[in-house]
Nucleic acid binder design. Structure first.
Length: 229
DNA sequence: TGAATGATTTACT
DNA sequence: GTAAATCATTCAA
């Protein structure tokens, strides 16, 4: 435990922060809680604090797209350097965004499942609004799911493979990950929507801020918890 | 070339 | 509680 946490990383460049993401995805995932995801797009800037994530652990994890080392056009970004984005489409409708972890050729990643909106709430409402809806969505419904937050922040595959840690010289449209404030208490649970993965579905590789009202769902009887300080 | 399948969300009963 | 929406991606042929 001699390594500083993601939250306290301060550096002129990005090499130190990137080194954090080069570690095992199971160590990195809970430390992503509290970090801030910022989306700079042509229509404006939106951001949110990460309050829920899941770890997908490369070739041995049957729930991961890279299970068995499957390296395809879709999963290519997961084999790239840590600190980059892996964005994919699910159900032909929704986008999901991950933070690539581990060394190059280790296809492991942290799925971002929920955010607490910080900036650009009006823009999020516009993007998340459905035709016919008159009243705005509750704040807790804007980014409380992996598909919802991608819609709110206008994240799609144009960000696939992009560097989340390098902001200088970046294109106008970019995704950025910044250090933030770690949660007081971290809850764990099995991952959502991967029942097909057999024994791997039982692993408690979902991590969330126990004190946040912005998680995608609060487990009915989750007793697993751990204090962070 | 074609069939099967989702790391989901939303609306509806 | 159940079901529809909707298509990129994968894999078999």
């Amino acid at each position: 435990m001699s390594q500083p946490s993601l939250q306290t990383a301060s550096e002129p460049g990005t090499s130190l922060l990137r080194a954090k993401f080069a570690r095992d995805v199971l160590d990195v995932a809970p430390e992503c809680l509290g970090m801030v995801l910022v989306a700079h797009t042509s229509s404006g800037c939106t951001s949110g604090r990460i309050v829920e994530v899941e770890a997908y652990r490369g070739p041995e994890d049957r729930a991961a797209h890279s299970y068995g080392g499957r390296r395809t056009a879709r999963t290519e970004a997961m084999f790239g350097p840590p600190g980059h984005a892996y964005v994919f489409v699910i159900y032909g409708i929704h986008h999901h965004v991950n933070i690539v972890t581990g060394a190059v050729d280790e296809p492991r990643a942290v799925l971002i499942r929920a955010l607490e909106p910080l900036t650009g709430e009006a823009l999020m409402q516009t993007r998340r609004g459905r035709p016919g809806r008159v009243t705005p969505l509750p704040l807790t419904e804007l980014c409380s799911g992996p598909g919802k937050l991608c819609q709110a922040l206008d994240i799609d595959r144009r960000f696939n493979g992009s560097d989340l840690l390098e902001s200088s010289g970046a294109p106008v449209e970019r995704l950025e990950l910044r250090p933030g404030c770690a949660p007081r208490r971290v809850g764990t649970s099995p991952r959502i929507g991967i029942d097909y993965a057999g024994d791997w579905a039982g692993k408690s590789w979902r991590f969330y801020d126990l004190d946040s009202a912005h998680v995608s769902r609060t487990p009915h009887s989750s007793r697993s918890r751990k204090e962070t300080h």
